[in-house]
Design a protein around this nucleic acid. Structure first.
Length: 564
RNA sequence: CGGGGCGUGGCUCAGUCCGGUUAGAGCGCACGGUUCGGGACCGUGAGGUCGGCGGUUCAAAUCCGCCCGCCCCGACCA
């Protein structure tokens, strides 16, 4: 493809609306253009990359027996009412104004609606159907370029099995395929156990790419490979020990002490001696008290996993109403009508200090066995950096990550709601057992950029590079340069390389170099007068910056060493 | 939805606090010329309802009100 007749809208300036590297570079390199918040056009170079990624996905999905389908984005709202997901998604789902229809944010319903009519026997199963299509979600706040958009391209596949063992197999096949896909796309990724969230189901894993720009937080062990989303991650931090002796409850006057830090300072005790009390409301009616070690952080996803959905922090006025005290002086002693749970780490501990439910007072020597009636201990605390790994004891890292893939064992929820039943070998009617497996296509690209760029621009892996080779004809007004460049361009095309040829005759050398580095093709071939006199050109590897002078006759040889 | 920031040629910005010639700069763009291995230089030129609507005023990019849009933090995130 020749530069002079193509659309490569690169720009030098950093776009004002972009803050993370992938977003900045996708805009600067002319891959995408914003149309509205969270909505992007893919320009020719960006679209080539999308195709590369999609091709890899298709190959690996086909390899596990996946069959590609194309499903409607426009769905009758009735279909979504059958699974109750109109309410589940709420404002996240786009609703069409002048028809009773919605824009599909995912496709379990459509899949089931097809399956119920055609997959009637266990002999029709298993099946894996996949799609690579635009999904629509009315995100409250789109952000980070293509990482969280309102319209985005997703590979979703759906497995349908007649047995739970079959589901396990389909799930494992997807896990293996995903490893291949992300590896082939040049991503450094890790897999974490995840919370299934509103999708429901029995198991799920996320494929994560470590990046400062990621929205998820994961604990990872550099030593043994343990990795988990902090929504489920645990560490080997020890539980609180039981102190010796029979310690009596005592009231402690703590004027104007509100926070754990202030309490530590005021009483001159370690934070481990403090039992932190957090108050929540469930379903707007059930007050909940959560007890944690003073300097531990509650993870609200873990709280929801323990107690169910619809939990929110209690409002200040509710706190006073239900406890008689203000936040900062709350505790388990004397509190009535609260559902009370505690983090595993304070299990059966004693000698702790908690709030007295009376402003400016705390209570010492609280004993969780003797003084507190609990509705259960749960893992509620969020893992912190450098805590010992639960598997090997080495210090954990806590990192941000981009979720590029998520695989779920859905089970029978959707099949039951939509009455997708089959007859098993005994003639019994059973719901189809489903799995669903997503990949964010743009997220792969953004993640690759986050992991592969420098101050000059993009650095593509060959597998998803829009072109393999970027030819720079330096002074195209020079006949020798023009002729040699055109020749080499043709030779490379004849050898099945994908080539972009900067044949512009109205920009200077420096301009072309900058554009080439910004666009980031793996190999650049620089054709200038001086080298040409000796029958040579320069070959530069974008990633390393390494340059070498190569005889024109030897180019194909050289490229074979650098590419493929 | 709460908090913050921003909106001026295609891009990046100045001008707004303190109203007052014809609204500026750099880059980009067009034309001519000089250059030709790291966004080169000279000259000429085109390009703006200053986000929109309303108000105050002799006079509004500038002050006031409402609305819209975009970005960031938070809430939310199958």
């Amino acid at each position: 493809m020749k530069f002079s007749t193509s659309f490569f809208p690169t720009q030098k300036e950093v776009p004002v609306d972009a803050t993370i590297p992938s977003h900045i570079l996708m805009l600067r390199a002319g891959l995408i253009r914003p149309l509205a918040a969270g909505v992007y056009s893919h320009l020719p170079v960006g679209q080539r990359i999308m195709h590369k990624v999609m091709q890899i996905i298709r190959e690996e999905m086909n390899a596990i027996g996946g069959q590609e389908v194309f499903l409607p984005a426009l769905n009758p709202i009735e279909l979504w009412q059958e699974t109750g997901r109109v309410d589940d998604f709420g404002d996240i789902m786009f609703h069409v104004k002048n028809r009773p229809m919605v824009l599909a944010p995912t496709h379990e319903e459509v899949i089931c609606s097809i399956a119920k009519n055609f997959l009637r026997s266990y002999r029709d199963l298993p099946q894996i159907w996949y799609q690579i299509q635009t999904k629509f979600r009315n995100e409250p706040r789109p952000r980070s370029g293509v990482l969280r958009g309102r319209q985005f391209l997703m590979k979703d596949s759906y497995s349908m099995d007649f047995s739970w063992e079959g589901l396990d197999k389909s799930y494992d096949k997807h896990a293996e395929a995903y490893k291949k896909i992300f590896s082939r796309c040049g991503l450094k990724f890790f897999i974490v156990g995840a919370s299934s969230g509103a999708m429901g189901g029995s198991g799920s894993q996320e494929f994560m790419v470590e990046s400062e720009s990621g929205e998820d937080t994961c604990a990872v062990c550099p030593d043994c490979g343990y990795a988990a989303n902090v929504e489920v991650a645990v560490s080997n931090v020890p539980p609180l020990p039981r102190a010796e002796g029979d310690l009596r409850l005592e009231e402690i006057h703590t004027p104007n002490v509100r926070t754990i830090d202030e309490l530590v300072e005021f009483l001159n005790v370690p934070a481990e001696k403090l039992a932190k009390s957090l108050v929540y409301m469930q379903d707007n009616k059930t007050p909940i008290l959560v007890l944690m070690v003073g300097n531990d952080q509650l993870n609200e996803t873990k709280l929801s996993s323990a107690l169910g959905p619809n939990i929110r922090p209690m409002r200040p006025d509710e706190i006073v109403q239900f406890t008689g005290a203000h936040s900062g002086s709350l505790g388990p002693i004397g509190l009535k009508n609260f559902k009370t749970i505690a983090d595993n780490r304070v299990k059966d501990a004693n000698g702790l200090i908690s709030g007295a439910n009376k402003d400016d007072y705390h209570i010492g020597n609280v004993d969780f066995v003797r003084d507190v009636k609990l509705d259960g201990y749960y893992d509620l605390r969020e893992v912190k950096e450098n805590e010992p790994c639960v598997q090997c004891g080495q210090p954990l890292r806590v990192v941000n990550a981009i979720e590029v893939g998520h695989i779920f064992k859905l089970g029978t929820k959707y099949a039951e709601d939509l009455k997708a039943y089959f007859l098993n070998e005994k003639g019994e009617e059973k719901p189809i057992i489903m799995g669903s497996y997503g990949i964010g296509v743009e997220r792969i690209i953004a993640s690759h950029i986050e992991q592969n760029h420098d101050e000059n621009g993009l650095i593509w892996d060959e597998s998803i590079a829009p072109f393999h080779i970027h030819i720079i004809g330096l002074n195209m007004k020079n006949e020798n340069v023009r002729e040699a460049s055109e020749n080499i361009y043709q030779i490379l095309l004849d050898n099945n390389y994908e080539v972009v040829f900067d044949d512009r005759n109205d920009v200077t050398a420096g301009f072309k170099f900058k554009d080439a580095d910004l666009l980031g093709m793996p190999v650049q071939i620089i054709i200038g007068e001086k080298n040409l006199k000796d029958g040579n050109v320069e070959v530069k590897v974008r990633r390393t910056g390494k340059r070498s002078v190569v005889a024109i006759d030897d180019i194909i040889n050289k490229l074979e060493k650098l590419l493929h």
